[in-house]
């Protein structure tokens, strides 16, 4: 681990820019957006309004084009993604456990570099307490599935950068001149801060919830009644992977996929109108059970890592923490 000032962070971006398009939180007229940087100095420390999912599974992308008698399939390149939070990185691991077979996803994943920003401030909407907590540690429950290349912390105006993979060490090596080793005292303060934040994030318990998520729980219809079907909770969720596929015909045959939402009626509707999830509450149930029960049963992990993005994006204020608490209560 090396410690330095803001130059260390800028230096990191510069080093990565030599090999990647760097995606990091940056300011867009009063908003913080996770987006490609043009300049190293643009990176900010605030949590961006969008999740990193689109840099592995874009909102919309071309699967193939057929023109002049031949197919052309894209071979997209990944990004160096900075400033995503541990919860989001874990969610990307969940995404990979499903999408890992997808050629476009895989091509991006294999050529991506991840630098996670550990949370040294509690976040207002997250609940990662049970799901790994505010840093991606060596004993992280998700460690067997992968690790970010780097992790950085910020505390009292100082930046702490740590490498978790070989590739990360290489990059860190190039930054030696911009920082120094961390003192025992600094590390201790950092550990304290992380454990405080962690305590704070434990207010919502998740482990064991699969036992409580009954098929006929009243929570589904209660929340479904309030859902306006905007799809945002799915779109903003870094682990939701569902997509729709459509064809375009612009002189050439183009097949496109785009993010989809299981809360929409058409998601499961079949020709002539038959729909196994016709009612809104059936779809709300699907969203909850898929995340907290089915996925857990088949992979051992929840398909939710407590980042809180869904509740931030929900116009109706549907709060997943509230849903979970209700499942516990009844």
């Amino acid at each position: 681990m090396i410690v330095g000032g803001r130059e260390l962070l800028d230096g990191l971006v510069k080093v990565l820019m030599e090999r990647w398009t760097v995606v990091a939180p940056r300011e867009v007229e009063g908003n913080v957006v996770l987006a490609p940087l043009e300049d190293a100095g643009e990176i900010v420390l605030d949590r961006p309004l969008n999740s990193p999912k689109e840099y592995l599974l874009p909102q919309e992308e071309i699967l193939f084009e057929y023109r002049d008698g031949g197919f052309k399939a894209p071979e997209p390149r990944g990004y160096a993604i900075l400033g995503i939070r541990p919860c989001e990185f874990r969610a990307l691991l969940m995404l990979k456990s499903v999408m890992g077979e997808d050629p476009l996803f895989l091509s991006r994943w294999n050529s991506s570099f991840f630098a996670v920003q550990a949370c040294t401030e509690p976040c207002p909407s997250g609940f990662c307490g049970d799901l790994g907590g505010p840093e991606f540690s060596g004993i992280d429950p998700y460690r067997p599935l992968g690790a970010p290349d780097l992790q950085y912390y910020t505390l009292d105006g100082r930046v702490f950068v740590d490498a978790l993979t070989e590739r990360g060490k290489e990059v860190l090596g190039a930054l030696r001149d911009l920082g120094e080793g961390a003192t025992e005292e600094e590390l201790e303060r950092l550990r304290m801060r992380i454990s405080e934040v962690w305590e704070d994030m434990k207010r919502v318990r998740v482990v064991g919830i699969e036992e409580r998520a009954r098929w006929d729980h009243p929570a589904y219809s209660y929340f479904a009644e309030r859902c306006i079907q905007c799809g945002a909770c799915n779109f903003e969720c870094p682990s939701c992977f569902c997509f729709d596929i459509r064809d375009e015909d612009e002189g050439a045959w183009v097949r496109v996929r785009e993010w989809d939402s299981c809360l929409l009626e058409g998601f499961s509707k079949m020709a002539l109108g038959a729909n196994p999830r016709k009612r809104e509450e059936d779809r709300m149930r699907q969203r909850i059970l898929h995340k907290f029960k089915y996925f857990k049963e088949t992979t051992g992990f929840y398909m939710c890592t407590g980042c809180g993005r869904c509740l931030e994006a929900c116009p109706s204020g549907i709060d997943l923490r509230e849903v979970i608490s209700w499942l516990w209560r009844e």
Binding site: V98, M99, E101, D102, F241, C242, F243, D244, I245, R257, D260, C262, F267, S268, P276, Q286, H290, K293, Y294, F295, E297, T298
Partner: peptide, 10 residues
């Protein structure tokens, strides 16, 4: 097994 549309239970 990727797009999620045909999911039933697990």
């Amino acid at each position: 097994g990727l797009c999620g549309h045909c999911n039933i239970g697990p």
